[in-house]
Design a protein around this nucleic acid. Structure first.
Length: 443
DNA sequence: GCATGATCATGC
DNA sequence: GCATGATCATGC
């Protein structure tokens, strides 16, 4: 096993040690005793992580797991996530610490047991699967450092006070998760008829044991903001540009057929009629299997996939439909089409091989030269002029080198109103296939 | 063969 | 529920 050192008194050191887990399993990183490996699904993964990965025995009291870390200690939490519609979601609530009915009524928020133990937490996320033994479950997300006083304290404090006050009123047995927003008082204990009820203050009624927890929805919101902040899909360094970094993502797939790529990124075409399949593939290539590319979104880059056949572009390139009633009052520079063609494009070019299968031929960045934007402006101006007179008759592909207007709707019944008082099928601006063909061929 | 009109599944 | 990213289907 690799030697791994970290400093139990340093939060940073514990975090960087924890990061070594990302993308790995406990089994890959440690030598586990045979009795653990042999017994499937036994043991709490959090405990195993502390014992065998951190080589640390947490104190058995109300202190955080690492009491000496930083100013007030660090609590380590290990929790499961699952993948739903391509997104990571919490498998269940995150249990924080047991509620001591007799003690909590003596506490204030600031000196509470909850804040002392869980004020600073490092949360580790593994991909849950019932079939996979705990030591073989992969930590799929970077650890999340959570500071309770800096994150949603107001709401959590209110939740805590509500629970505390209910207990003080002798209603511990009436606690319910629905009482509160983020912090819940969840059931924790053996359950069933044999469960020994706990004493509670100011009442003779026994109460089931409960723990503070983060509700699953709250955990999900933490998870998604953590992922959008912290998971760059495009890694930049000093000697590589943004453009190169994205193009490098495609390098692995150049020359491969759509079918092969689909298998490799885990997104296969089920329905042959799906028209956006290659576009979805491109997003997954660039984002390592996800569907969003925040870096491209932030930069306003438009990805377009196009198919060639014998060097010819198969289709023109569409944009969102415009509204007849709006375009007549717009200026060119405020229009959606202007805003789109000013952007940087990432062209993903497919061509057919000898078996007539599409394969990834090349990828390249481009933005529209000024003179072509002037030409697009002419088409737009002409469209605006014609919509006001007769919205049925708009600039055709044969009328401009660069762009034209054509339907972009679900079907011919998918219409919107025109200035003439009629309804016309939705249309959009298209970049001519002949024009884009020359663009793509010059990449 | 190409321009034009029509349409489709998918993801948010 | 509908916009989106596209391709399909025709008719000249």
């Amino acid at each position: 096993m690799k030697e791994m050192f970290y400093d139990k008194t340093s939060v940073d050191s514990i975090i960087s040690h924890a990061k070594k887990l990302t993308g790995k399993t406990l089994e890959e990183l440690t030598d586990l005793p045979p009795n653990i490996i042999n017994v499937n699904n036994r043991g709490d993964l959090g405990t195993l992580i502390e014992l065998y990965f951190f080589k640390h025995k947490p104190p058995n009291n109300h202190n955080p797991d690492f009491p000496e870390a930083g100013k007030s200690g660090l609590e380590l939490k290990t929790t499961g996530v699952k993948k739903v519609n391509d997104e990571f979601r919490a498998k269940e609530r995150l249990v924080l610490t047991m509620i001591d009915y007799n003690n909590i009524i003596k506490e204030n928020w600031r000196d509470s047991n909850l804040l002392r133990k869980c004020g600073l937490m490092l949360i580790l996320f593994y991909l849950y699967s019932k079939e996979i033994p705990v030591h073989q479950r992969k930590f799929v997300i970077e650890p999340l450092l959570y500071n309770l006083l800096e994150t949603d304290e107001k709401i959590i404090r209110k939740d805590w006070e509500f629970i505390r006050n209910k207990i003080e009123q002798g209603k511990a047995h009436e606690l319910s998760e629905g009482d509160t927003l983020y912090l819940g008082a969840c059931r924790k204990g053996s359950g069933g008829e044999k469960e020994k009820l706990r004493e509670q203050p100011n009442s003779t009624v026994g109460a089931k044991s409960r723990a503070f927890s983060f509700k699953p929805e709250y955990l999900n919101s933490l998870l998604s903001s953590h992922l959008s902040d912290l998971e760059p899909t495009i890694i930049l360094s000093d000697d590589i540009t943004f453009e190169q970094a994205t193009l490098n993502k495609f390098k692995l797939y150049l020359g491969k057929t759509i079918y092969q790529i689909g298998q490799e990124v885990g997104y296969e075409k089920v329905n042959p009629k799906q028209k956006s399949y290659e576009a979805e593939l491109a997003k997954r290539i660039i984002s390592n299997g996800k569907t969003k590319v925040p870096e491209l979104d932030k930069a306003g880059i438009i990805i377009k996939t196009v198919r060639l056949k014998k060097g010819k572009l198969r289709e023109s390139v569409s944009f969102p439909y415009f509204k007849y009633l709006e375009i007549i009052n717009e200026d060119w520079e405020d229009s959606v089409f202007f805003e789109k063609i000013e952007r940087k494009f990432l062209w993903v070019v497919l061509d057919t091989n000898e078996n007539q299968e599409y394969y990834l031929k090349k990828v390249g960045y481009w933005n529209m030269p000024y003179k072509d934007r002037v030409e697009a402006e002419k088409v737009w101006m002409e469209t605006k002029r014609k919509v006001a007179i007769d919205a049925r008759n708009l600039p055709k592909e044969s009328e401009s080198r660069v762009a034209h207007v054509r339907p972009h709707a679900a079907n011919k019944h998918d219409t919107i109103p025109t200035p003439q008082g009629t309804n016309e099928v939705k249309k959009c601006f298209w970049l001519n296939k002949g024009y884009i063909e020359s663009v793509v061929n010059s990449l």
